[in-house]
Write a protein that binds this DNA or RNA. Structure first.
Length: 217
DNA sequence: CAGAGGATCGGCT
DNA sequence: GCCGATCCTCTGG
């Protein structure tokens, strides 16, 4: 029997994020694998243009680091992957399969192309809006931001936020509320190159984690 | 300039 | 488990 990482039901339709400390660039480990692990259990807070606040707990990430054939940055900087070469703590948002967006946090020093993909988030506040932005019926709360494309859809993250500096913009914020879930490790999902590297991290026991059950024991 | 392919999703078998 | 949708980016000629 798996239980949610987050204890205590959030107030229905609560419009603000749970109490937390905002994480600044200086609080984040610059190493890609370190940040991928660090982000598990942290909060993702999104302020929409109309003032609505959406928040959730990051429960699944993947690292795309230096010298990684699976990384968009492997063959150098291009127009698309420019944000991966920014300093630590910029968003890299890209379109995948013409149908979904994926959001990453850039890692390492400026000039080095690397990032952490946010693959799943367990909703905490703004549930009604998260559900509306998914535009699909019959979803449990923990399914609203399960999978990288669904994270972006639910949280309203698109190409307009590509390159956003997490220290210079309030539209997307990372937070720490003290939670420290047990972390599991596995290979990454949906890639063909360097498929054997154990660069995926997830919160054990969270139903919001994506992928086959056997990948997240 | 054409063609291939992709860090996905959701529906169907 | 398999497959199609959908479209932007990068590569090669």
């Amino acid at each position: 029997m798996k239980s949610p990482i987050s204890k205590g039901a959030p107030a229905p339709n609560s419009s603000s994020a749970p109490p937390h400390r905002r994480l600044r660039r200086a609080d984040l480990p610059p190493d890609t694998l370190d940040l991928a692990r660090f982000l598990i259990g942290k909060l993702l807070v999104r302020r929409l243009d109309d003032g609505t606040v959406l928040s959730g707990r990051i429960v699944e990430t993947e690292a795309y680091g230096i010298d990684d054939p699976a990384s968009h940055a492997y063959r150098g900087e291009t127009k698309r992957n420019r944000a991966m070469f920014e300093a630590l703590a910029h968003l890299y948002v890209y379109l995948i399969y013409g149908t979904s967006y994926c959001v990453n946090v850039s890692t390492e020093a400026r000039g080095i192309g690397a990032a952490v993909l946010i693959r799943a988030v367990e909703p905490l506040s703004g549930l009604a809006r998260l559900r509306a932005q998914r535009g699909r019926d019959g979803l449990r709360d923990d399914e609203l931001a399960r999978g990288p494309g669904n994270v972006c859809r639910a949280f309203g993250i698109g190409p307009a936020l590509d390159g956003l500096d997490l220290d210079a913009d309030d539209r997307v914020v990372l937070g720490d509320d003290g939670a420290a879930p047990a972390i599991g490790t596995s290979v990454r999902i949906g890639i063909m190159k360097a498929a054997e590297r154990p660069h995926r991290f997830y919160a054990r026991g969270s139903r919001a984690v994506s992928g086959r059950r056997s990948l997240s024991p």
